[in-house]
């Protein structure tokens, strides 16, 4: 399945295609991130039950150094 991940096409094969599994494939399970799917924030509690669809637009957000 292909989604848009942080503006880039991203192919993934995790089954089932939940947001939790996608995050696991990135190595970010339990890390401090925020996720937006098609413009809406997905709360952490919903990662397991959020099924991804072809062409979903996902933004994975972290805290970085800034002033």
């Amino acid at each position: 399945m292909q989604v848009q991940l942080n503006g880039e096409p991203h192919e993934f094969t995790t089954v089932p295609p939940t947001l939790a599994n996608l995050i696991a494939s990135l190595g970010f399970t339990g890390k401090r991130i925020a996720v937006e799917r098609n413009g809406d924030i997905v709360p952490k509690s919903q990662y397991q039950v959020t099924q991804l669809n072809e062409h979903d637009r996902l933004e994975v957000i972290v805290a970085v150094g800034g002033g």
Partner: peptide, 9 residues
């Protein structure tokens, strides 16, 4: 303070 940015994949 921290900034909020896309994860650099």
């Amino acid at each position: 303070t921290v900034a909020i940015r896309r994860l650099d994949l």
